[in-house]
Design a protein around this nucleic acid. Structure first.
Lengths: 137, 137
DNA sequence: GCAATCCTCCGACAGTTGTAGTAGGCTTAC
DNA sequence: GTAAGCCTACTACAACTGTCGGAGGATTGC
């Protein structure tokens, strides 16, 4: 099992999510956050995850007064990108078209999002038409 | 570690992918398929994965002449759905809007897909407008 | 000053995953 | 009938994951 050391397990991701949402936090704060959102887990377990994450270079920490304050090093955007790429490769033959279509059919969108989608599709459509003309002429 | 028994590891998914693509196959066929696509792995390793998958109820097998022929029980669509749901929950706060937007901005689409996207957006737009009127009046 | 708290470190343990070797049972080409 | 192949079953093992408990040091309420 080679280069898995920089990958994030589900539980590690949960912890990282708290950090992204709440910003730099102590173990206790993260633990409280998780418990409040229904995740029953021991304090030391959270500590273990943070230690592992730090080891992977995904979070960093500074001692502040009594306790260490952890902060994310890896951005949510980066993780999203990697994960999405994996998903597309593993289940959509590397082509995201179908995925987008599937999402559009099954998900709900806010008016604002629909507006953005419309704009994006129009742009794509423009490009397509230009391509068509190029092929024709 | 409770109900993880029905989840698919990356390596298991690789094997399942072959089954989805190539249809029912023997261990040897799957092994060949994987090797041809650059995945160096021992015959018995593939067998292990298939055994585990069968144990999880994800594939089934029948003895045909000499060897067992394995076939998928779980559809690609189902796995896609589950995985997508996980991704959205874990990294997009349960709302797929942002995900779709991200994909639309970063991915390439075929003319046909663009056409479909346009249709879908138009439908969403219609709905939105009806909603607006309902709110106004 | 000392018990109650907190904090981190270390070790542990079972289940999962990736990977493969070996043993032993059929098939088949001679 | 026997060696060469192919097939599965069983075993193994290290790394990764999820989960904690206990040890031992610092802080603080009283």
């Amino acid at each position: 099992m080679a280069e898995r050391s920089s990958e994030l397990s589900p539980a590690e991701l949960e912890v990282l999510n708290v950090l992204w949402e709440a910003g730099p936090s102590t173990v206790r704060q993260i633990h409280g956050h998780l418990r409040r959102s229904g995740r029953q887990v021991a304090y030391t377990t959270v500590l273990t995850f943070l230690t592992r994450l730090e080891h992977k270079g995904v979070v960093a920490s500074d001692k502040e007064n009594m306790a260490y304050v952890y902060r994310p090093v890896l951005s949510r955007g980066k993780v999203r990108k990697t994960r999405l790429k994996n998903l597309v490769e593993q289940l959509y033959d590397g082509a995201a078209g179908e995925l987008v279509l599937q999402l559009m059919k099954t998900q709900k969108f806010s008016p604002d999002e629909i507006e953005q989608l419309r704009t994006l599709v129009e742009q794509l459509d423009e490009k397509k038409k230009r391509g068509d003309r190029a092929v024709e002429g």
